[in-house]
Simulated scan of single mutants.
Amino acid sequence: MRKTVLEAVGLHRAYGDVQAVDNVSFTLAEGGSLGIVGESGSGKTTTARIVVGLEHPDSGRVLVDHRDRTQHRRGRAQRLARAREVQMVFQDPFLSLDPRITVNAVLRETLKLHFPDGDHPRRIAELLDQVGLGTREGDALPRQLSGGQRQRVAIARALAIEPAVLVLDEAVAALDVSVQAQILNLLSDIREQTGIGYLFITHDLGVVRCVTDEVIVMRHGRIVESGRTDRVLANPQHPYTRLLLESVPRPGWDPKQIAVARRALAASKAP
């Protein structure tokens, strides 16, 4: 049985009267892949930001390798150690890359910060190769790369500090379908090679089906269904999960029926 690398316990986060995250708990095994799925406003991104440490929960805990990430850590060394536990890849990598420096420089800065005594040129070459990039891309500025290439750079930078968990927040949503498939295959290969744990935040059930072992479905800040991805998608138990599946366009799909189902769900007592 694989050890638990990430555990969220009773997370709560409110903004005024809005309960964005309401008693959310889950675990992620070492080398596992967990999807958090839901529509905009479901609480999935707030949950991800709490896991990474970009936001603090009102209550609850996040543990990585049984270390509590919600406790304040003082000092530069402790903050860097905390950053090495969990890294995040965002939807738009261009916003998180310095447009003035090359890809090699981006990776070098990260490595110098976390591993000042390492062999940086060798490690940069390894990282570029790991994400399917070469010396030409390493010498390029972010604006000289395609969207898919920039996302590969963002993944390489996150992997550079060897995190236990990689959080991917809609990380392929802005890419063309063919490029999405390439990035998802790349991520699957990296997980197999490194044993890193993935937390996928997405509204796309196709992504969930392709790259996750387990899934949790969130609505109004709460988990309404969870389990093995194949089981949840094949036999959803909650009406909201069924609505998400029925909302995926396919032959014979009628958006009017989806609107009727959505109104019925809103009128019901289902959370």
Results as ranks from 00 to 15, higher is better:
Ala171Lys: 00
Arg152His: 12
Glu162His: 13
Ile183Ser: 02
Ala140Met: 08
Val217Asn: 04
Gln144Lys: 13
Gly221Lys: 01
Arg228Asn: 11
Ala154Thr: 05
Thr212Phe: 05
Leu127Gln: 06
Arg219Ser: 05
Leu184Val: 08
Gln151Glu: 09
Thr202Cys: 08
Val177Ala: 12
Ala171Glu: 00
Leu145Ile: 05
Glu225Val: 12
Ile190Pro: 03
Val207Ser: 03
Gln149Asn: 13
Ile223Met: 08
Ala174Thr: 15
Leu166Asp: 07
Ser178Met: 14
Ile190Val: 08
Tyr198His: 04
Leu127Ser: 01
Tyr198Met: 07
Gln144His: 15
Val153Thr: 05
Glu170Asn: 10
Ile161Asn: 07
Gln144Phe: 12
Ala160Phe: 06
Asp204Cys: 12
Ile161Ala: 03
Leu168Lys: 02
Arg228Thr: 11
His203Thr: 12
Gln130Thr: 14
Leu145Pro: 01
Met218Ser: 09
Ile183Met: 08
Arg191Ile: 05
Asp129Cys: 15
Leu166Tyr: 04
Val217Thr: 11
Val207Gly: 02
Ser226Leu: 09
Tyr198Asn: 02
His220Glu: 11
Val215Ile: 14
Ile201Gly: 00
Asp139Glu: 14
Arg219Lys: 13
Gln130Ser: 14
Leu175Asn: 06
Cys210Thr: 04
Leu159His: 01
Thr202Asp: 03
Arg150Cys: 03
Arg150Tyr: 06
Gln151Ala: 10
Gln180Ala: 02
Leu127Thr: 06
Leu205Tyr: 00
Ala140Phe: 04
Ile155Ser: 04
Ala173Asp: 07
Leu145Asn: 04
Gly132Cys: 13
Pro142Gln: 09
Asp213Trp: 03
Ile223Asp: 03
Asp139Asn: 13
Asp169Asn: 13
His203Tyr: 13
His220Asp: 10
Val208Ile: 14
Arg191Val: 04
Gln182Cys: 07
His220Pro: 06
Gly227Cys: 08
Asp189Thr: 11
Val131Gln: 05
Gly195Asn: 11
Arg136Ala: 14
Ala160His: 00
Asp204Lys: 07
Glu192Thr: 05
Gly195His: 10
Leu184Pro: 05
Arg209Val: 10
Met218Asn: 09
Leu168Ile: 10
Ile183Arg: 00
Leu175Met: 09
Ala171Asp: 01
Thr202Ser: 09
Ile155Asp: 03
Arg209Ala: 09
Val208Trp: 03
Gln144Leu: 13
Ala156Phe: 01
Gln193Ile: 09
Gln149Cys: 11
Gly227Ile: 04
Ser146Ala: 14
His203Ala: 13
Gln144Ile: 11
Leu175Pro: 00
